[in-house]
Write a protein that binds this DNA or RNA. Structure first.
Length: 199
DNA sequence: GGAAAGATCCCT
DNA sequence: GGGATCTTTCCC
């Protein structure tokens, strides 16, 4: 297992004031790190995200605050976790100003730390370990107990070690799996040439 | 109290 | 490409 970068540190609070479509591509390459009791780790670098904004019919915040989506209207830099299709958990990073209702859905990570920990939590591994919002939540043990969690502190953190994808390697597309506002191109992928990937 | 939709996953 | 599966939300 690769050692964690020594210089990795939480993002400045101001980072999360950005509107979601600006924060989303900037989250690519950032480290998502889960810590478990006993010091076990799991995590990797963010490779796929989607932005959901205010005035966005596809967003869970569109109809206003409810018991479940309340963290979306809270301060940026916190987690919004919901259950999808009754089975899977999905993890978002809240952005924008409090009351705005914006978030960035984390759809995929490149698993780098704690592979054994993550594999043990999922039936399938390899390429299918963390390449989907429900998959990465299962691999990292993210559930609704982390709804509203401050992402600058354990047990779930987003860390910056100044890893910055080349702009040419960022692909922008419409969002996936939604039925409203399907044309808005707020999905961002960090796609590198194959030789850059470690297997 | 019931019904319907849903930011998915996995196998065929 | 389609079925599984169940929580949350909304409406009566």
């Amino acid at each position: 297992m690769d050692p964690l970068p020594e210089q990795a540190m939480p993002l400045a609070a101001a980072f999360f004031l950005s509107p979601p479509e600006e924060a989303a591509p900037l989250l690519l390459g950032k480290i998502l790190l889960r810590t478990f009791p006993g010091g076990r780790l799991a995590g990797g670098r963010i490779t796929e995200v989607e932005a959901y904004g205010p005035e966005d019919p596809a967003s869970h915040s569109f109809k206003g605050p409810t018991r479940g989506n309340r963290p979306m209207f809270g301060p940026g830099g916190t987690a919004y976790v919901y259950i999808s299709y009754g089975i899977h958990h999905c993890f978002n990073v809240v952005t924008g100003f409090p009351g705005e209702g914006s978030a960035v859905l984390i759809r995929g990570i490149e698993a780098l730390w704690g592979l054994e920990e993550m594999t043990s939590r999922r039936a399938s591994g390899g390429k299918n370990l963390c390449n989907g919002p429900g998959k990465l939540c299962q691999a990292l043990g993210i559930d609704k107990s982390l709804n509203g969690h401050d992402l600058s502190v354990p047990p779930l953190q987003i860390l910056d070690d100044r890893c910055c994808p080349e702009p040419a390697h960022i692909i922008q597309t419409p969002r996936i799996g939604i039925t409203k506002a399907v044309e808005i191109p707020w999905r961002f992928l960090w796609k590198r040439p194959l030789e850059d990937f470690k297997f």
